[in-house]
């Protein structure tokens, strides 16, 4: 149906597509990454140098790199779980009626929210002991566990803000209605306020998870054997051939993209859905 009129009527509003950068859309990274991987090997065929085709080299290393990537995912899921649990408590602390709890939670949240992730990671790495002894029992405290703890700190602070923001975003009428029905504050929170907050919190929470997943490569700087560390080691053991750089890092890019992009798309869909229902 076409809409043509000179009368001042309301036309159906169609939301314009977001202006793409240089005509590129997010999924265009796929061919770019593939080109990065395949390009050098195509070029390689024309050279007369000895070594193996870069693509073949990459395929040899791929299982190990994938293993490293899975480790990144383990770190991201663990840090997210830990950060979410502690962050949710902290967020509830921020809306507490007890001034000390509220102030303390606010301070901790703001402190960790405004700290660079890498610095927090270094703190966790170098301040935590390599083992803890409880009742004479020595429990090792490996680097990857410290990385999880270090990354869960900014997650915690961000989750705290997501919870506080969601609770604040509900109309005050919901609190008043619950109050006038003689619900206790705890009942109001658990039965009425928080259930309504979950869907408001889900999109920013998933967004945070994407960011965290991509930030897990920071753990390579502190020596955890995740995908970036292994990529570096693989490249080194191949003698640091420059034509391998693009395929290897292109491969890592691709892994993160394939994992994170669907999450981003799903988040956008959730946001749109909840924007309508409200």
């Amino acid at each position: 149906m076409t809409w043509k009129t000179d009368l001042p009527v309301m036309l159906p509003v169609t939301k314009p597509e977001p202006e793409p950068f240089l005509g590129l859309k997010a999924w265009h990274i796929l061919p770019v990454a593939l080109f990065a991987i395949l390009g050098p090997s195509l070029g390689f065929a024309q050279t007369e140098d000895g070594g193996q085709n870069p693509l073949v080299v990459l395929m040899n290393w791929a299982p190990l790199l994938l293993q490293g990537f899975v480790f990144n995912l383990v770190i991201s899921v663990s840090a997210m779980a830990l950060g979410t649990v502690v962050g949710a408590l902290l967020g509830l602390g921020q809306i507490s009626l007890i001034p000390v709890v509220r102030g303390g939670s606010w301070f901790v949240t703001q402190f960790f929210r405004n700290a660079p992730w890498l610095v927090l990671l270094f703190f966790a790495m170098f301040l935590l002991p390599f083992e803890i002894s409880i009742l004479g029992l020595k429990i090792p405290f490996p680097d990857w566990l410290k990385a999880i703890l270090g990354l869960s700190l900014p997650v915690m602070a961000n989750v705290s803000e997501i919870v506080r923001g969601a609770v604040r975003s509900l109309p005050s009428g919901q609190w008043e209605a619950a109050e006038s029905l003689a619900y206790t504050r705890m009942q109001t929170l658990w039965l009425i306020i928080l259930p309504q907050c979950v869907k408001r919190m889900l999109p920013p929470w998933m967004n945070l998870y994407s960011i965290l997943t991509m930030a897990t490569v920071l753990a390579s700087i502190v020596g955890v054997s995740e995908v970036m560390t292994l990529t570096g080691q693989a490249l080194a053991s191949e003698g640091g051939r420059p034509e391998l750089l693009a395929p290897f890092y292109g491969f890592v890019l691709l892994l993160f993209f394939i994992y994170c992009y669907p999450i981003a798309r799903f988040t956008v869909r959730l946001e749109k859905k909840f924007a309508v229902i409200g």
Partner: peptide
Amino acid sequence: NKLELRKKVGMVFQQYNLFPH
């Protein structure tokens, strides 16, 4: 004891304030 008071006094609001979930 506000809870005891509010068991005796009901209230209906301009904006209904039903629990949407």
